[in-house]
Write a protein that binds this DNA or RNA. Structure first.
Length: 488
RNA sequence: GGAGUGUUCGUCUAGUGGUUAGGACGCUGGCCUCUCACGCCGGUAACAGGGGUUCAACUCCCCUACACUCUACCA
């Protein structure tokens, strides 16, 4: 398997957003290519002109790049066996389709879609096997010529053996065999002058020297037909490997109702690219030991086709978030800064009134507590704006009788703390606790935290006091005292 | 309807004839602690069902059930 250079491709049809299932397929191809120093190729399969969406293609490429799955050959960067966009290879497909006709392995079919529809309805009603009935398969050359001359619309179909069976080997599932009578005659060339997916795909994989085809398992039923196609051309088929589908958390199809489906959505939620790569890699593959947190290099090093399993799996967002939390805490703050800044702006926080150095400190204390970007807003908004309300439950617990007096004392302690550092503040709070006869400073800390942040959770109080700076703390304490006055 | 693929804790998975069926997320008890989060220690929970093969089956074979996919001039 490694004596010839590995060449794999990701061949999306740009008709919508990049689905996590597609992303996983791309990832496995990429990992495999990187592992063996092979080539990872991006090929745009835009043979369906009616469903093609330029914006979808742009978005898809953006998502792939965001994940860091860079290709070695593709429509944007070229390569030796291009073009890498099927709509630019139309004459190639035509040539090969004609070649098959000449060899007698394909034929012109003049059946109209109306006739095909009727045929299917009848087949269904009579509970017969579905599929093209082969009406045009036995047209005489004379008849065919006559109708061609007359300008009738036609498609080109592959002549599939009527008897026997066709089998192929799937790398992760073993031998898969189909009875030829189950296989109907594939359309190779459509009447609009475009090739079908099947023809374009097989011709391109061959011409581009693809050694391993890794794709979604919805392709399993067409693979025997592709095998017939390869045989008809006299070409050696690549190694096939069909990856299982990704299901929604509760089972069933992944759909918008059951959570996010596209890479873009996860990006917007604040999932880090490395998290998504790592998480997706573990869906249908594992390194064989218990390692779960792996960076790109480790993934490449450990990846192996032999450990890919054929079972479909569910996308567990809870675990994704856990993993993202792990990545947040281990990420360098400066890599997080642009995204957090943007998120804060979108939440209408006045990030511009403060400098990046401040934001850096804020991210530092939040990143180890956050699982996605919205956590940064939830846990960080008070760094930018004085709280305009206090958490109700926390008020009940920490703004009890005497809280006002307590805050006044805290205020005076803060005011008189010359050396405004965590150490001195801790010492000062400790002393206040002693004076008041408390066992520890907890009874002072909680009301203070609530007054300056509006919530009952967050970083260590002394850290918070310093980060917010003395002036802000004093202002918020006074505000808290006013609040308690008006409350009584 | 037909064909194909799949089936180990709720979820992701390890396991390739003999294991107290292991790990991770989740949930949960506790520790740590000024709170939250982290971390640490513990708990919870699985071989779809039925037949074989075998001294022995989660592992091999068959059947059933269930899930998913395909059955387009879509990919």
């Amino acid at each position: 398997m490694t004596d010839t250079k590995i060449r794999v491709r990701f061949a999306p049809s740009p008709t919508g957003t990049l689905h996590v299932g597609g992303a996983r397929t791309a990832l496995f191809n990429w990992l495999f290519a990187r592992k063996f120093n092979g080539a990872f190729i991006l090929r745009i399969e835009d043979t369906d002109q009616t469903r093609y969406d330029k914006n979808a293609e742009i978005a898809m490429i953006k998502d792939l790049k965001w994940m860091g799955l860079q290709w070695d050959e593709g429509p944007d960067i070229g390569g030796e066996v291009g073009p890498y966009r099927q709509s630019k290879r139309l004459d190639i497909y035509k040539k090969y389709a004609l070649e098959l006709i000449k060899k007698g392995m394909a034929y012109y079919c003049f059946c109209t879609s109306e006739r095909l529809d009727e045929m299917r309805i009848k087949q269904k009603a009579e509970k017969l096997a579905q599929g093209y009935d082969g009406l045009c398969r036995n047209l005489t050359p004379e008849e065919t010529d006559k109708r061609l001359q007359a300008g009738e619309r036609y498609v080109i179909r592959l002549k599939t053996p009527l008897e026997g069976s066709t089998c192929f080997s799937d790398y992760i599932r073993g031998e898969i065999s189909y009875q030829n009578k189950e296989l109907d005659d594939l359309i190779l060339f459509k009447s609009n002058g475009f090739p079908s997916y099947h023809l374009a795909n097989v011709v391109d994989d061959h011409l581009m020297g693809i050694t391993h085809v890794m794709r979604g398992d919805e392709w399993i039923p067409s693979t025997p037909k592709h095998k017939v196609l390869y045989d008809s051309f006299g070409w050696e088929p690549p190694v096939f490997m069909h990856l299982p589908v990704i299901l929604a958390a509760g089972g069933g199809k992944l759909s918008k109702r059951k959570g996010a489906v596209s890479v873009t959505e996860y990006k917007e939620m604040g999932i880090l690219p490395n998290t998504l790569i790592n998480f997706l890699s573990l869906l249908g593959w594992n390194p064989g030991d218990d390692t779960e947190l792996m960076d790109r290099e480790t993934l490449i090093q450990k990846f192996s086709l032999d450990r890919v399993n054929p079972k479909s799996c569910a996308f567990d967002e809870k675990k994704l978030e856990w993993m993202n939390g792990q990545y947040f805490s281990s990420s360098a703050t400066e890599t997080l800064l642009p995204d957090v800044k943007k998120t804060f702006q979108e939440a209408s926080l006045p990030v511009e009134s403060f400098d990046d150095a401040y934001l850096t400190l804020v991210i530092d204390v939040i990143k180890e507590r956050a699982k996605n970007l919205s956590d940064f807003v939830e846990r960080g908004s008070y760094f930018y704006a004085d709280p305009d309300s206090y958490d109700k439950k926390a008020v009940k617990k920490h703004f009890k009788d005497g809280a006002k007096q307590l805050l006044e004392q805290v205020l005076s302690v803060i005011n008189s703390t010359e050396d405004y550092t965590e150490e001195s503040l801790e010492k000062a709070f400790q002393e206040l606790a002693n004076t008041l006869g408390y066992e520890n400073a907890a009874k002072i800390i909680h009301p203070t935290r609530l007054a300056i942040s509006g919530v009952s959770f967050g970083p260590g109080l002394y850290q918070l006091l310093v980060l917010l700076n003395k002036e802000t703390v004093i202002r918020r304490l006074e505000k808290g005292i006013h609040y308690l006055e008006s409350k009584v």
